[in-house]
Amino acid sequence: MEFMSSDDTKQRNGQADGQVSASTGGREQMIIFTVGEQRYCIPILSIKEIREFEDPTYLPHCPPYVEGAINIRGNIVTVVNLANYLDTAPQPDNERRVVVIIEDGGQRATCGLLVDSVIGITEIALDEIQPISVDGGAAELSGLVSIGECVIRILRLDAVLGRLLGDDAITAAAG
């Protein structure tokens, strides 16, 4: 962190939380995936790799959106079941499920997102992002963007990692 220039930091945080400030007028590459019927996207720079879903190790006392832990080159990485996290139904009998491994710049934490399928990459103009009001209960999302007929939701990665690392009230651990 300390060897990063402040510009770097901004950029990385931008990737990590999926919050892209609308004032920059820049464009950003996003990866689009589906969970259930919906399409979501996250900045491509936050993605470390995409891998096939394999049975993770169950983590005791975990909330329903935690699928378990997997080994990624010697690191223990938690897999988040995005369907449960977003409270939506996953596609049934899906063979194409993959785990998108993301890394957060600020918190330096890594996690896997279990999604139904990865559709592709798109470039979006940051000033075309429609903000979402948080009072609407959409703390998981940072905005919407329309591509053609389709509305794509931008997932807030900092919120996912924040929940995982337990800085919300549902921390199971008591010490």
């Binding site: 983590l59 005791p60 006392h61 975990c62 935690v66 832990a69 690191n75 223990i76 990485v77 938690t78 934490a109 890594t110 996690c111 995982l164 690392l165 337990g166 921390t171 199971a172 651990a173 008591a174 010490g175």
Partner: peptide
């Protein structure tokens, strides 16, 4: 585990 997750009881 805590690097990428929280502490787990037990």
């Amino acid at each position: 585990i805590e690097k990428n997750y929280r502490q787990i009881q037990g």
